[in-house]
Write a protein that binds this DNA or RNA. Structure first.
Lengths: 254, 254
DNA sequence: GCTTTATTGTATCATTTTGTTACAATAATA
DNA sequence: TATTATTGTAACAAAATGATACAATAAAGC
């Protein structure tokens, strides 16, 4: 979770300060948050976007709240857009995290106090939140990681080298990965993590990384080609001491 | 959604009357509801449990709210228990229904007014709700449909002969069925809809009904037996002019 | 009782899909 | 020009699935 987007300006009245002063959470659905696991792929590694909060050393998933006049899915798109600048991206709900045990105000207080704000104990941000988990698949090269108004950075972290995360965010990521793994074949969503054009090798490396196992090259290629969702682009790639592979792209018409 | 369980007594202070009087929704997470699609299987038909509300002719999914001191998943189990008397049943989240357009106070007002209660316009029940959809698979013969305190009946309805439902409950059922179809093979959850012991024919009929297509008998049997999750019970069934089939049951140890 | 009937469990073979190996094509490099 | 590594695909093997067949048998009909 943590702090809806902001118009990301430097002036005082940014989104978060509005939220801090907004003691009752006016304008947002109460007790409901969104957490977004944004996956990227680079150097044969799966990555996720994390925020770091000023002066606290705390790491968290990008998240936000739902406006009174906004669909839940819209809110998730807004969060995704505000952290990456991307629209029209694969984004899906995967689980609701609603255990009462996840209510832990300590990290929030730390963040607020680092900003020299001491909230009242019944400030809305300190109440129990149920969070709707979304996962997104983005083109690593297109996303522009953008911190929100109270975090000093928004960066990619390797999935197998994550820092300790706030609250239950680690479990949220684990569950998102699990969902990605089970949906990868069934929904054929992998190419959402690649650039528009990619080689068969790129695609296979991606699959192997996500599923964490080796795949058979000939069989993989045959399966992908016969799936009918790939289109061979006329141009070829160049850059290695070997036969040039074709470039493929996802066929929209399906 | 609609009105958490109740201790289901006849005395005045039942759960719903508490909720009616409870203008601010004290004790519940605000704006969050649970809707449960409870599937049963009987006479080769898929069924769902629906509530009818007194004097209104309105039909709705069993649902409820989440208590301040309760996990979301716990709340769903409580709802399932209070409508069926069943515990330890297959129950899973499948989607969050959070469009602002689903906010429609007309049916709720109708229900309340049928009970001669005229709510204030900012009564908590008339506010926008986001609903977490759960689906459950129950043994039709074991469930005891129990209406909540403001509905006059809780009954099984055939999935292909549903009445017009309140709000977006029809879409919720459709999405639940879709989820069931895609998870049926992968998670091998079908037998949750049958009695403890069942024949291979029972299981195949169930699959055919859910997937809405014919399956090849020999292949189905081979696949189920090789899956390793079925245990052949020594006893045999009787009752038809033909060879007696074996009875099977789900093997817990897996 | 004996035959008829329908359904079950499984074997057999055909077909399709997937795993494995091999090899020609080829773009950079030496 | 030869060498190298990787690609695309063919060819065959193995496994999974589809289709057909048939013996076993529990009840019903006669």
């Amino acid at each position: 979770m943590l702090f809806a987007n902001g118009s990301f300006t430097i002036k005082m009245s940014n989104e978060f300060e509005k939220q801090e002063m907004n003691v009752t959470g006016e304008g947002f659905l109460p007790g409901l948050a969104i957490d977004t696991v944004i996956f990227g792929f680079h150097d044969n590694k799966l990555k996720v976007l994390l925020l770091t909060y000023k002066n606290t050393g705390l790491f968290a998933l990008p998240g936000g709240f739902i406006r009174i006049n906004e669909d839940v899915n819209e809110a998730a798109r807004r969060v995704l857009y505000s952290r990456t600048g991307l629209i029209d991206i694969f984004l899906d709900q995967f689980y609701v995290f609603g255990d009462k045990s996840r209510h832990d105000i300590a990290p929030l207080k730390t963040i607020m106090q680092a900003r020299e704000f001491t909230p009242d104990d019944n400030h809305w941000l300190l109440k129990r939140f149920v969070s709707i988990g979304f996962y997104a698949l983005v083109d690593f090269t297109k996303a522009i990681p953008t911190p929100d108004s109270i975090s000093d950075s928004c960066d990619w972290f390797e999935l197998d080298d994550l820092p300790v995360l706030m609250q239950d965010h680690r479990q949220i990521i684990d569950k998102a990965l699990q969902t990605l793994q089970t949906n990868l074949d069934h929904k054929l969503i992998g190419f959402n993590l690649l650039s528009e054009n990619f080689t068969m090798g790129d695609l296979q490396s991606l699959y192997e990384t996500i599923l964490n196992k080796k795949l058979i090259r000939a069989a993989f290629q045959r399966k992908m080609l016969s799936s009918g969702i790939l289109e061979r682009v006329a141009k070829k790639w160049t850059g290695g001491a070997h036969k040039a592979p074709y470039l493929y792209r996802f066929m929209a018409g399906r």
